[in-house]
Simulated assay, not measured.
Amino acid sequence: MTTITICGSARHRDAIYQTAELLEEAGFVVLKPPLHRIDELTAGQAAELKELAWKGATFAHLNRILKADVVFIVNPDGYIGSSTTLELGYAVAHRKLIAAMMPDAHELARSVLFDLLLHCPDIEKAVSDLSKRLAPAVES
């Protein structure tokens, strides 16, 4: 069974959750980013606590990337932020297959790292296309 870790900006929170649900329905094991609202959760706490929370969330998601067969970047508008850039570099360093919905809107240096570029801003169609590409070849 193929394990897919989803990466993407928190600004795409709803799209990430929708993508995860559709991929699970298609039969994949899906690991999604926590997308915690750490600043809200740590409001009024010491700066050290906020830093530890961010560090823990970051390392937890990098561990999800290690467990994945495929890293899927959910970026329906082409946006890839700094956290997703970090995750992309980590996935490349660990030789993961990397798929993305859209090319990076501002930086070709990121887009060239995608193994599968779907050119599709629509969540349902992108999941369908990705599922077809990841389906094992049927022997005749």
Results as ranks from 00 to 15, higher is better:
I38H: 04
S131E: 02
C7D: 03
I6C: 03
E124M: 03
S128H: 14
P33E: 06
L97C: 14
V138I: 13
A99Q: 02
P76E: 12
D77Q: 09
E139K: 15
L130R: 04
V71N: 02
L130Y: 05
T2F: 13
R13D: 13
L118M: 06
S131N: 09
G78I: 00
G81Q: 08
F59D: 13
V71G: 07
A135V: 03
L41K: 11
L23N: 11
R37G: 09
L108H: 14
C7G: 06
G44V: 09
L134Q: 09
L23E: 06
R110M: 12
A15R: 11
V138P: 00
E25F: 03
M102N: 14
P121C: 08
H12W: 02
T5W: 10
L31C: 06
H36G: 01
H12L: 06
I4P: 05
Y79A: 12
P103V: 01
L118Y: 11
G44F: 10
H94S: 02
A68C: 11
E124A: 15
E51V: 10
H106C: 01
L88G: 06
V112D: 05
S128F: 11
A53S: 12
D104A: 14
A60I: 01
M102D: 03
V70P: 05
T85A: 15
L117F: 13
E25D: 14
H36A: 05
T19W: 05
V71F: 10
F72G: 12
K32I: 08
L66I: 11
A91S: 14
W54H: 15
V29F: 09
A53K: 00
P34Y: 06
R110W: 09
L49E: 12
M101G: 05
I98E: 03
A109H: 14
G78V: 00
E139Y: 08
A93C: 10
P33I: 09
V112W: 04
I4W: 02
L130G: 08
K50I: 01
I4N: 03
A100Y: 00
K55S: 15
I98C: 03
R37C: 04
L134Y: 08
A15V: 02
S111C: 09
F114W: 09
L113I: 01
M102A: 06
I38D: 07
G56E: 14
A53I: 05
K67L: 14
H94F: 13
E139C: 10
F59L: 15
F114D: 00
S83N: 13
I98K: 07
I98A: 02
V127P: 01
E51W: 08
H12V: 06
E51I: 08
I98V: 15
L116P: 04
A47I: 15
Y90I: 12
F28K: 07
H94Q: 10
A105V: 09
W54D: 04
E139Q: 13
E40H: 06
D14P: 00
E25N: 06
M1F: 02
A60W: 02
V70L: 01
K50S: 12
E107S: 13
C7Q: 13
A105G: 09
I98Q: 05
T19N: 07
Q18D: 14
E87I: 07
V30Y: 06
E51T: 12
A91V: 07
S9R: 01
V70T: 10
E40I: 14
N63F: 05
